[in-house]
Design a protein around this nucleic acid. Structure first.
Length: 535
RNA sequence: GCGGGUGUAGCUCAAUGGCAGAGCUCCAGCCUUCCAAGCUGGUGGUGAGGGUUCGAUUCCCUUCACCCGCUCCA
């Protein structure tokens, strides 16, 4: 199986198109076609129904420490700019970077220091990543550049103090931190991974705002509102589905890394002492969700992050990853991250941006000792009115990509098998074996031939089923061809009106995967399809 | 962002410095009682912009997009 045939089918059948295709497309943006939009809606609907509306808050679910509540939320894409300053996204996403053309390395513009140095009658600006041993690095780089030995160290004429690269106007005489030749650094470029826009008529910085790079922050800043309006006790999960935007440097691999994408996120708030158990619960629960919707365990893995990969406040993070066809053997692409975020997010919005590198997650301060980004000052802690205990809840975050899930389901469904044609000759059949819950069209209704009153009966069946499901009517051409078309669309069931229908009010229902046909009464169509979808 | 490759019909692929072609698909009609049958007819195309030229899909430049590798992936 290769990605090209999947991409080709998606275009041909109307699952996915390139955005603005008639103008040549736009990198990192994709449109869902008529079948694609149904698939994606079904993915989101399955998630919302399984996680939120269908959640059983009365029972202790398997693997869970206790019953818990779930609520939904739908926040705006543009939020107060301070949200992103306190969350850390602003600083992280706002860097100016320089690239080294020679070594292909990339550096933060404001974290490269350097000094003018002269030797052999030539003056260059030697650089190093800012840090304690930068002078050592300068010396080493300079000696190497001028092809001098350690004993000539005193011949180097240093000119002026160490300054930041940001103080230089041009880089022609600059030796990159790891380069061998001069002028290999590019001009600084703003790597603003957040899309910037302007609120109101002002186009200056005071009106600047950002499209959200994740939906999570909307949940954190509304935590208190949800608690107060629903009167829930912890543990409580708050769910949201919505668009997020990241100005990815290298969108690649079809819809896998897009600049506009949709997330399905839960922020699960609980007592710190129980957070480890909840973390394990959500990790296992979310993995099972993909399994239950048809992703085989061969293609799905749970990858626990190593200690050194974790943000230091995080107790654990596990990625649920899928073996996409565009990845090389043994490699997987992330579908969902389940992370234990401690109280980092709520505290950030209370106190201000926290310093992730500090051991006790202290407030990040400016040079003048003031908070770098001030928080809301609002108390986001929780008082348990049974125990009278007050604490800042810990958070477990299962964060899934709706587009990535849809893509994984498409890849998993794509199958080519051999089926006999009417002469008994084996032909390749392309079939999308989507789970019936996810299939864009639940059933197609055909008259076996376009005469003898069959179309009239079939249309009645169609119109009746249309009230309950997304169904499709087709009477054109040979019935075999119509079956094959539905196979490519992933339609799980085809209902055919034939000669016998006119005598006893029965139709055949054909199963996409097994090709088996069973005869059922017209009246039973709705309940049979409903039962089969639910399985 | 760097290097390499590719852009011709919905798909797969031809051809050419001088009217752009085939198969499949699709549409209409005929035929047809269960898995892409057959017959007849039909729709439809050189990614975008510029240059060279009497004439460019073809040669050159720019750009956009996609693919592969590197880089990146909060």
């Amino acid at each position: 199986m290769n990605m090209d045939s999947i991409v080709s089918l998606c275009k041909r059948r109307g699952f996915l198109f390139q955005s603005s295709e008639i103008y040549g497309g736009l990198q990192g943006f994709w449109d869902y076609g008529p079948l694609g939009v149904e698939l994606k809606r079904n993915v989101k609907e399955a998630w919302w129904s399984d996680m939120v509306n269908g959640h059983d808050d009365m029972s202790t679910l398997a693997g869970a420490p206790s019953p818990y509540a779930m609520e939904g939320l739908d926040c705006t894409i543009i939020m107060h700019p301070q949200v992103w300053k306190c969350s850390g996204h602003y600083d992280l996403f706002h860097d100016h970077m320089v690239d080294c053309r020679e070594t292909k390395k990339r550096y933060r513009y404001d974290q490269i220091n350097g000094r003018w140095v002269e030797a052999k009658g030539r003056k260059i600006f030697v650089t190093a990543p800012a840090g304690e041993d930068e002078q050592e690095h300068f010396t080493k780089q300079t000696l190497k550049f001028f092809k001098l030995r350690n004993k000539h160290i005193d011949d180097l004429k240093w000119d002026g103090p160490v300054v930041c690269l940001t103080d230089l106007d041009n880089f022609e005489e600059v030796l990159g931190p790891d380069a061998k030749s001069l002028g290999s650094l590019t001009e600084p470029r703003e790597f603003n991974l957040m899309f910037k826009t302007f609120v109101g008529a002002l186009s200056g910085e005071e009106g600047a705002a950002f499209l959200r790079p994740e939906t999570a922050q909307g949940i954190f800043v509304n935590f208190k509102n949800v608690l107060d309006s629903t009167r829930h006790r912890l543990p409580l999960g708050i769910a949201q589905i919505g668009k997020s935007f990241r100005n990815e440097i290298t969108p690649r691999n079809f819809t896998f890394r897009s600049r506009e994408f949709e997330q399905m996120e839960i922020e699960f708030f609980c007592h710190p002492d129980q957070s480890q158990d909840w973390y394990r619960y959500w990790r296992d629960r979310r993995l099972k969700w993909y399994h239950d919707l048809g992703i085989s365990s061969d293609n799905l893995i749970m990858r626990e992050h190593h200690q050194n990969e974790l943000a230091h406040y995080s107790v654990g993070t596990a990625d649920i990853e899928y073996a996409f066809p565009f990845m090389s053997d043994g490699e997987y692409g992330e579908l969902e991250g389940v992370s234990h975020r401690g109280d980092f997010d709520l505290r950030s919005h209370m106190e201000g941006k926290l310093d992730e590198k500090s051991n006790d997650l202290a407030l990040q301060l400016n040079a003048d000792g003031k908070p770098k980004w001030k928080g809301s000052g609002k108390d986001l802690s929780y008082r348990d009115d049974l125990t009278n205990e007050k604490y800042v809840p810990h958070v477990i975050e299962p964060s899934a990509g709706a587009d990535r899930a849809a893509l994984a389901f498409l890849c998993e469904a794509y199958t080519e098998d051999e089926q006999p044609d009417e002469k008994g000759k084996m032909q390749t059949r392309t079939v999308m074996k989507l789970h019936p819950r996810l299939a864009p069209i639940k059933a197609a209704i055909f008259p076996l031939v376009k005469k003898d009153g069959m179309p009239e009966v079939a249309k009645d069946v169609y119109l009746d089923l249309k009230k309950h499901f997304k169904v499709f009517y087709d009477e054109k051409g040979a019935v075999g061809r119509r079956y094959r078309r539905q196979d490519e669309a992933g339609t799980p069931y085809c209902i055919t009106v034939d000669g016998q229908t006119l005598e006893d009010q029965t139709v055949t229902i054909r199963d996409r995967d097994s090709l088996e046909q069973t005869r059922i009464k017209i009246d039973e169509c709705e309940s049979v399809i409903r039962d089969r979808i639910r399985q």
